[in-house]
Design a protein around this nucleic acid. Structure first.
Lengths: 179, 179
DNA sequence: CGCCTGAAGTAGACAGTGGCCACATAAGTG
DNA sequence: CACTTATGTGGCCACTGTCTACTTCAGGCG
């Protein structure tokens, strides 16, 4: 059997929790169950996360990082589609990231990761003058809301639909020649 | 003191739960606490709601109904602003409505109320031909995402900001003469 | 080499929760 | 009045997050 000391429990717990969340939903994730899956006593995770919320925050931060990678190098409507695709591919993770139960202020890493993603979004709208900020915000809002509403079952989950919705808008001070 | 039978426990529990949720957040709401506030034993609510989720679903349905009223008679960007204002005014309720922990299929009233709201949104885009559906979806997505991202602290909570973001887009096949 | 300090993991306890059960009470109905 | 049925009570169970005290081990220092 393995050693008494696990070696990399933090990672193991995160992985277990990640699987749990995606299978059982956010409510189905308990620290104890994650510990069980990692083959460790119910209390061990507390050596690595001060409390349950901290574990959630770590999962969310991980999610932001993944989302960042998924958006890398894309722009225009391709970027939007990638955003939605990520949300639909990792629904529970996405919910966790934007569920609002995590106080952004309390978990610095979370904030950092989130802002990195934010930056990626706004970067795609650079060079549009003063209005760029609002256009970027609108773009993010659009794809974010779209993803959320599909996840909630208010819209059909269909690739073509997403494309058409994203295509249905133009930016007031925008790049008509977007990719 | 009051009678053994409460009279309208269902309403009382809903009210108590509503206050709780807005004060403590979604996690702070327990059936038992709601029962306490309603001055009734821990189990009484279960006569009116099969389980905790059903209580949440009822709260959410209520929320959709309120949202519906808030949107009544409005159109164009005024409608969008009203949507966001509702979300910012009842943040926890809004989160509950769109948090995704409620299986829309399992609670018919929820679905009904949600679709009524949906209808109100799309109605504002009637008469735009085949593309209307997508424009309406885009509009809903935009304001929904905007609200959510503000609630999460990713955007500033500012009336002027909202107006400008909403103003930053045009619809491909849209009503240039919107209110 | 052996000790020993501190990090990592374990074991047990506690209050609070959702949800089940059997029982008590009230309100209508014949 | 008797009886049925909705409504509310109290006790119970498994489970959870989190606290406190104990155990095991790894690495540095003599």
């Amino acid at each position: 059997m393995a050693t008494y000391h696990h070696g990399d429990l933090r990672t193991a717990v995160l992985a277990a929790a990640g699987k749990l969340i995606e299978k059982e939903g956010l409510g189905g994730l308990s620290v104890r169950e994650a510990a069980r899956r990692a083959g460790v006593s119910h209390n061990a995770p507390y050596r690595h996360f001060p409390d349950r919320d901290a574990l959630l925050a770590a999962l969310a931060a991980q999610g932001f990082s993944q989302l960042g990678k998924a958006l890398e190098g894309r722009s225009g409507r391709e970027l939007g589609e990638a955003y939605v695709r990520f949300a639909l591919g990792h629904p529970q993770r996405f919910r966790l990231m934007f569920g609002g139960q995590l106080a952004l202020d309390r978990y610095p890493e979370l904030r950092t990761q989130a802002e990195a993603t934010h930056g990626r979004l706004t970067a795609a709208f650079a060079g549009l003058g003063a209005e760029a900020k609002f256009a970027a915000a609108a773009a993010w809002s659009l794809v974010h809301g779209l993803a959320q509403l599909i996840l909630d079952g208010h819209f059909e989950n269909d690739e073509g639909f997403v494309t058409k919705v994203i295509g249905a808008i133009r930016f007031a001070v925008g790049p008509q020649r977007s990719a």
